[in-house]
Design a protein around this nucleic acid. Structure first.
Lengths: 357, 357
DNA sequence: GCCGTCTTGTCAAGATATTGTCTAGGACAA
DNA sequence: TTGTCCTAGACAATATCTTGACAAGACGGC
């Protein structure tokens, strides 16, 4: 195996506690795996303490994921990193993306993925994270929440993190604020942290190499950006190169962004704002200005509210993140059609070029 | 290891207490780190007292943050600033990104980074960053901009990064959009990236230890959050523990946040919105609800616009970041003796040792 | 189905290593 | 004089290490 020439990455300097955080394994397990199966061979400090390299950590994390999928460590321990990755990839491709981030190492290869279902274990794991996160919010501990979420993003797959943790978390927060268990200030704090973490997930999960481009934003008049960030993170974890533009973009600027980037898809996040007059107008203007072959996805509660306009501008309206993923994938698989919620094919006027420079 | 002749331009003039304030480390720790691990080598005054340069402080802050993630100071101390930064922001997927994209040129160029912190040339260094950043914006390259800014934040000191790069950059962008050289879409892109980077700077610069707390937000009706993030980053770099709450917070929620956290100061960022009726009302409500010993600072163009209210609610109105820093520092110095009129959560009483962890 | 064996994660105890804080005695600065 | 800073050493709190034991499942044979 070729040795990467990155000094920082080579440095084997992480004490076991860091490995604990980044792999989700207990220190005991890490040690016993080393002793019984020789999964890694960390160097030792002068005082005899184990010092792990990023590569060690990466391998441990791969193993941890692989065992979650059912294999026994005794057998997996002998496998090469490639074999491990191959084993995990079919079950959970997003791992590759998120993994690449922290370990700064593995390639961004397998972006394809068949079965989206993370599995029952991931759900229960996510529930734990959910409870601890809520506890942190309750005691108004933003730092702890930040840490917990980042850790969860690593421990869980990107998909599980978003679907089984972030989404339920925001819903629970909203519910608690409604029934008075939490104050609005709690929600603000949580949202501030969530924005930060989601932004982080998005940028780190975004594949560096040229790939399918998608622009994510919120139309003019929409201030709520959590949904947009969620969509951005989901798209990024799914192998799209995301350009996130923040909330409240006028139609002209959206169009210009899409054209300059040459994006194939545009995801707009719409909060529920019944009776809103601005949004429908912006959406119509958007479709008029937008190249015909750019697919438009309306994410969030607002898509339901403005359903007639949604149909009118030939936009897809995924019900949730899972549906959005499917539609994005359909888009990526070469078909220019995005299935709309009611089944009609949306978008795609392949004849008209988009006139890129 | 080349030993660069230290330019007198970057005066090493800070006594240890300033370092204490700006890093969140106790004087004991700073001294013992120097003695045991040689993390910095401050010059001495005629009387034998340590005098720290800004670069020293920056390094100490990086180290303090790096230890937070679990690394042991004994090993971290030997690391280069680049390696440290990579450790703190393991999310360096963007590095891989650009490396991969223009892989045409050898990676060495990126690794062999130049100029740590030249004193008098700090401004020229910042000018370079400014130009390259503007170029990235012009060609609509958000990924490159992100990378450039993060690098600059490491290469320059936090102060220089904010004052000599970010602030001028936003001004130049605004000017270019005005005169038509850049499109609004460019500005949106740049702001989206800037928000992300500033948020990152804020969190990484915020001292992990209990220290003086400040809450940064934007009052209800203010959507623009770049200024608030800028102020947050500046305060964090100055040793305050920042709780950033995002834009558009109603007075009640601001007050509740301040009280729950036990913050000593509140920074509100106000954009220029002449004729605004909501802001003055919110500000008055705020002062009425807020504990009397909480200092209020109004940052941004809006403070000028609402000058009468500013005076009425006994708020400071710094003209720029430098002035805000001064006022914050004065607050930090003076309040040692100021008794808390209200018995709420005595916060961090400085002076004696502060509890680690 | 039942029972022994193997696998695997967790825990305990006793010893070291590492690190932050504190004390004491003295010097310097305003 | 008073407050800040310096050095050196002592000390307490964590983190980690090693060895060994053990419980819960998984598995295979009867």
């Amino acid at each position: 195996m070729p040795v990467p020439a990155r000094t920082a990455a080579l440095a084997a300097i992480h004490p076991i506690q860091v490995v604990t955080r980044r792999t989700g394994l207990s220190a005991d397990v890490i040690r016993v795996w080393e002793k019984r199966y020789g999964v890694v061979t960390p160097v030792r400090s002068a005082g005899g303490r184990r010092l792990y390299s990023d590569a060690d950590i990466e391998r441990l994390r791969l193993l941890a994921h692989a065992t979650l999928s059912g294999g026994t460590i005794g057998r997996l321990a002998a496998l090469s990193p490639e074999a491990l990755a191959a084993l995990i990839a079919p079950a959970d491709a997003s791992t590759g993306a998120v993994t690449g981030i922290d370990a700064a190492r593995p390639a961004h290869e397998a972006v394809r993925r068949p079965s989206p279902v993370p599995g029952g274990t991931a759900m229960t794991a996510a529930r734990d994270h959910l409870d601890t996160s809520l506890a942190a919010i309750t005691r108004f501990d933003g730092v702890a929440l930040d840490l917990l979420l980042r850790r969860a993003a690593i421990a869980l797959s990107a998909e599980a993190f978003l679907d089984a943790l972030v989404v339920p978390l925001t819903e629970r927060i909203a519910a608690h604020v409604r029934d008075g268990t939490l104050r609005p200030a709690h929600r603000h704090l949580a949202h501030a942290v969530l924005r930060r973490v989601l932004d982080h997930v998005t940028t780190t999960a975004t594949p560096p190499l040229p790939s399918r481009d998608v622009v994510v934003t919120t139309p003019s008049g929409q201030g709520q950006e959590l949904g947009a960030l969620l969509a951005a993170a989901a798209a990024a974890a799914d192998g799209w190169r995301v350009t996130y533009m923040g909330p409240g973009l006028p139609a002209e600027d959206i169009v210009e962004t899409v054209e300059r980037i040459g994006a194939r898809a545009l995801v707009l996040s719409l909060g529920a704002a019944p009776g809103d007059r601005v949004i429908p107008r912006e959406l119509r203007r958007l479709r008029a200005l937008l190249p015909g072959d750019v697919a438009v996805l309306l994410e969030g509660a607002g898509a339901e509210v403005h359903r007639s306009v949604t149909a009118e501008i030939r936009a897809a309206a995924p019900r949730d993140l899972a549906e959005m993923r499917e539609q994005l994938r359909a888009l990526a698989d070469g078909s220019d059609d995005v299935p709309t919620s009611d089944g009609t094919a949306a978008a795609a006027a392949p004849g008209r070029g988009r006139g890129r420079r």
